[in-house]
Nucleic acid binder design. Structure first.
Length: 634
RNA sequence: GGUCCCGUAGCUCAGCUGGAUAGAGCGGCAGCCUUCUAAGCUGUAGGCCACACGUUCGAAUCGUGUCGGGAUCACCA
């Protein structure tokens, strides 16, 4: 049991004995004692003084005396300042803690609890390569899965591949039009980048054709539209003219909106867009040549993804393909109708009314009977549960889908699905550049493969400058560059609270100093270097004279199990990132001040070696939760 | 317009289940390598915690409102 939990228990027992009142852990707070006061942990007394009918000073004094008398193994001293009872934990406890755990590589982890959790993450589209945003998703998902594992859960990592739909048809059409039979091999291009290039080519051609239509429209030629489209366009144009005549600043926004609508209609009317839509229909009809092309191009993408996933350390226990799941959920619609959770409109479309929950009416089936995105998700949620009997289902998806995920969970709940309450949307904020959002149209998207390679390069340059590993062979060197470069990137993306948007500055944000992955890796390497030289002897060390910097480190290490618990509870890897940095920093301060190998006495040396070993274990374990390796030398 | 998220040092972020004088890193300034890896350590400057009101013994933290930024509200996925 951690010292904080122990302290809570002792305080509860003491108050029960002293005042005959039963408190719980939630009735009072225990904090770390601020450095400017004497003590290790502090009981905040304010919340207790009313029930015990005592002044803070008197309560603190009584409680402090009682704790020291009854639990001499834990507490040695106390002082009361205002409403704070500062307690000094006995050195015996800290030494005992080191002796017990210094060699336990599982320290902090919990035994299996028999529960299953599925973490869905990554979820790529097969029309373009992964970018920086995907990296945040992948690192988060993988890390959260590891955190659950360390907390005793059985974890199934899953991925839903968005492999069908208009976007992949766009790449296919462009390849047919402009590809001349080129392949990733013939052009020496990674498969996902290759297909992505055709997606861009499609967009460029689409833009060109839309511009041509626009110039026709400028001459009042609307022959490229069908009747319905023409009516819409004319209506919008009339509205626009009216707004322009009013010459009101407030109309500007409306006009922008109308222009967007017009552009959308125009884009959909371009020949190339019509071709793509036809191809989607052909795909749904299972037309052999379309299916064949689809398989070929997706195959290229998967080959590319595999390389990237391997490089960044993402893997999945199961992969769902939308081409297999997009028809799911149709039965659900029928069930929902018969349960009166859904209702049908006159045109045959099916809806759910969520206005009572503060949301809108939401379509669940089109009038043509095909299912929409949300319906597929309901179906897949059901399938996940049927297949694995999972206790919890985590979805790592960006915060632009907060509304969608809220709706998904709500519908599942209304349908009375047993897993509905355990659906959790792990929402994360977008990664932005100093110049704003990444936009593929403006070519400001940071490519995943490129940024990883760049990080490895920086790692290489810095390592060569420092010249500490000149005896490494090429293989060892490349592994080290990868470990450091990727470690820096992962740490950078994971150290921030997932739900917050974050800014990535390619020039400045990635540093190898301070609050970074490499700094932590560096401290691990230093410890390993010492452990190679010093002889750590098994058996308990006895030392009753802990120096402040030694104690700081022990106190920090002792918190690890609680930190893991918190990270799991919050599904938040940044909790671990912040903690492991604290450990590295605390060790670093200790390291510069006190020599381990040339310690004052053999006893001190053994204590410090054990402390160093425990630090290395915790650093390695914590970094592993983040998916970051730590080198023995760097 | 409705709903949701965010606003803390020049920059990037902690702290938010209320607790002592609000913390890190980067950047600035000043020191420290004949001593276990200086990717380091130490010191210093830098804050009306967006603003206002409220709840409380106590508010960066909770509530309401205002301002600023973002997301979303498709028979797209």
């Amino acid at each position: 049991m951690s010292i904080v939990n122990t302290l809570q228990k002792c305080v509860i027992e003491s108050l029960s004995a002293l005042h005959n009142i039963n408190f719980t852990e939630k009735d009072f707070q225990i904090n770390e004692t601020k450095p400017e006061f004497e003590g290790d942990y502090t009981v905040v007394l304010f919340s207790l003084i009313k029930p015990v009918k005592s002044s803070p000073e008197a309560l603190g004094k009584n409680l402090g005396e009682y704790l020291i008398k009854e639990y001499p193994g834990y507490f040695t001293q106390f002082n009361v300042i205002k409403g704070f009872l500062n307690l000094t934990i006995s050195n015996n406890f800290w030494i005992d803690f080191v002796n017990k755990n210094y060699d336990d590589i599982c320290f902090g982890k919990k035994p299996l609890n028999g529960k299953k959790v599925m973490v869905e993450y990554s979820s790529p589209n097969t029309n373009k390569p992964l970018h920086l945003g995907h990296l945040r998703n992948n690192f988060l998902g993988w890390s959260v899965a590891e955190i659950f594992k360390a907390s005793g859960y059985e974890v199934i990592k899953s991925c839903i591949v968005n492999d069908r739909g208009i976007h992949i048809c766009k790449s296919m059409i462009a390849w047919q039009l402009f590809g001349n039979g080129a392949t990733p091999e013939s052009t020496s291009t990674k498969g996902d980048h290759f297909v992505g290039e055709y997606y861009v080519k499609f967009e460029n051609e689409l833009k060109k054709q839309a511009a041509e239509l626009a110039s026709k429209e400028a001459l009042k030629n609307y022959t490229h539209y069908n009747g319905e489209e023409q009516n819409k366009v004319v209506a919008f144009e009339t509205q626009k003219v009216k707004l322009l005549e009013e010459n009101n600043d407030k109309n500007k926004e409306k006009i922008v909106k109308i222009n967007d609508e017009l552009l959308e209609i125009r884009r959909n009317a371009t020949p190339i867009m019509k071709t793509a839509k036809n191809m989607l229909l052909d795909w749904e009809a299972g037309k052999p040549d379309v299916i064949e092309l689809w398989k070929k191009m997706n195959g290229w993408v998967y080959e590319g993804f595999e390389v990237t996933y391997k490089k960044i350390g993402s893997d999945f226990d199961t992969t769902y393909y939308e081409s297999n799941t997009y028809l799911l959920g149709k039965e659900t619609v029928q069930q929902g109708l018969s349960k009166n959770v859904f209702f049908a409109k006159d045109d045959g479309s099916v809806w759910i009314d969520l206005t009572a929950d503060g949301l809108d009416e939401k379509l669940v089936q089109r009038k043509d009977g095909t299912s929409v995105y949300i319906t597929q998700d309901i179906g897949l949620a059901q399938q996940k549960y049927d297949e694995y009997k999972i206790d919890r289902s985590i979805y790592v998806i960006g915060d632009e889908q907060n509304y969608h995920m809220k709706v998904l969970k709500l519908i599942c709940q209304k349908l009375g699905m047993p897993y509905a309450d355990n659906i959790y949307h792990l929402s994360y904020g977008m990664v932005e550049l100093p110049t704003g959002k990444m936009k593929s149209r403006e070519g400001t998207v940071v490519d995943a493969d490129e940024i990883v390679a760049e990080m490895e390069n920086i790692a290489k340059e810095k390592t060569e400058q420092l010249g500490k590993v000149n005896d490494f062979n090429n293989e060892e060197l490349n592994k080290l560059f990868h470990t450091i470069g990727l470690g820096a990137l992962k740490f950078f993306l994971l150290r921030v609270d997932p739900k917050k948007r974050m800014i990535f500055n390619p020039e400045e944000s990635i540093d190898f100093h301070g609050f970074t992955g490499p700094f932590i890796q560096f401290n691990h390497a230093r410890i390993k270097s010492i452990l190679r030289k010093g002889e750590l002897k098994k058996g308990a060390v006895i030392d009753n004279d802990l120096l402040p910097l030694e104690k700081n480190l022990i106190v920090a290490l002792e918190k690890y199990p609680l930190v893991l618990q918190q990270a799991c509870h919050e599904m938040n890897p940044s909790v671990i990132a912040i903690y492991v940095y604290e450990i590295a920093k605390t060790f670093s301060s200790f390291y510069t001040e006190h020599s381990i190998l040339s310690a004052e006495t053999e006893n001190k040396k053994q204590l410090r070696l054990k402390l160093a070993n425990l630090t290395a274990n915790v650093v390695k374990s914590a970094m592993a939760q983040l998916g970051i390796e730590v080198p023995d030398r760097m």
